[in-house]
Amino acid sequence: MNSILSYLTGVFGVYKRWCTWQRIFYLTITGSLSGLMIVQTEIADALIRGEVGLTWQPWVATYSSVIGFTIVSPFLIYCCELWPFGKAHVIKTTIKLALLYVPITFCFITAMLILRNIAHLLIDGTLFDGWDLIDRYIYEFPKAIAIYLIFIFITYTKIYYDNSQKEQLNAANLQNELQTIRMQTLRSQLQPHFLFNTLNLISSTVYQDADKADSIITRLGDLLRYSLATEQKPFVTFKEELQAMQSYLEISQLRFGERMELEISVEPSTELLMIPAMLLQPLLENAVKYGIEPSNETGKITLESDLIEGLLQIKITNPWHQRRQQQESFGIGLQNTKDRLKLLYQEQATVTLDNNNTDQVTLTIILPAQHMEQTNE
């Protein structure tokens, strides 16, 4: 009983999905055109047989067939949706469809005959014909097999097409979700790394120089506020990012004092271009880590930006004291930056590390020059 109710519920669901104006419109057009082509053949056959007086009969015969099959078609559609036709199920499904032909065709013929008789009674007051009912079913059964097979073929083609579209859409959605998760993972790797280093700096100075530690904490608060503000804001203007990074650079200068010199040269046309939030922080951190920290001598970090042929170019130059380590690896921050830019820009962004001479290295980032409306898209 439950299986019967489940089947009827499924059939009702098919009918419900069909009952939209768009489906009814397409069904009406398709049925009307198919019936029109068939009725021309019926009229031609009638004329060949010498039945010149026939006028409305071929129309009734044709469209009663079209409407009758339309009535039972949702049952057939539901069964096709229920029974997959893949390699693992082809034999089983073929047997089921062959057995289904009997009840589907019986219902189709019944609906067709009812419609024909109603039409004949309304038009000329007589029944459709004087054939024995069993003979009529025996006559119509083999005629229906062609339309049955064609309809099954079209239905399965539509099912596989819809499934293919859904799979492509699901794959695209999954790819977007994975990309978002990966981006979040990359950012979560950058921020704790920076936070850990800064907290170590505060810990090492809080007892030696309380004012310096207080200043570091204030600037750290500014950076954290900026970081939190960009959680839901993946892109910021280059000017916003640079202003936030001033806090980081000031923290570093408080740490190293006169050992660290800084020069910033920003092309005004680049200030309103959009870049990924927190892009500069790991790059500047590496410049300090590899350029200033290893040596007791004075070192200079240079930050430059320029707009060249529709591309934003950012350069960070710093002293180079650990040649082997920098050659072998970009480090966590730089590698994450490369991965992050590849996810955002594919092959349109590049990150390169070049040694200008024996004691300097320049990190160059090239991004597409985008304004706010472009990043929103």
Rank of each mutant, 00 (worst) to 15 (best):
N2M: 03
S6K: 07
L8M: 10
Y15F: 04
R17F: 00
R17M: 00
T20V: 03
R23C: 00
Y26T: 15
T41M: 04
I43A: 03
G53M: 05
W56V: 08
T62G: 05
Y63D: 03
G68L: 01
F69G: 03
C79E: 02
A88I: 06
K92C: 07
T93D: 11
K96R: 11
L100A: 11
A119V: 09
W131D: 14
I147E: 03
I154M: 08
Y161M: 11
D162G: 01
S164P: 12
Q175R: 10
N176R: 13
E177S: 14
Q179G: 12
I181F: 06
R187D: 15
L190I: 01
H193I: 10
L195T: 14
N200F: 06
L201S: 15
L201M: 15
T205G: 02
D211H: 15
S227P: 15
L228H: 07
T230Y: 12
K239M: 06
M245Q: 15
S247C: 09
E250N: 14
L254A: 08
F256E: 14
L262D: 05
V266K: 07
V266L: 13
A277K: 09
A277E: 13
P282C: 00
E285F: 09
G291P: 15
P294H: 01
E309M: 04
Q325Y: 11
D339I: 00
D339T: 10
R340A: 00
L343G: 04
L343K: 01
L344H: 15
T352S: 15
L353T: 13
L363P: 13
T364W: 06
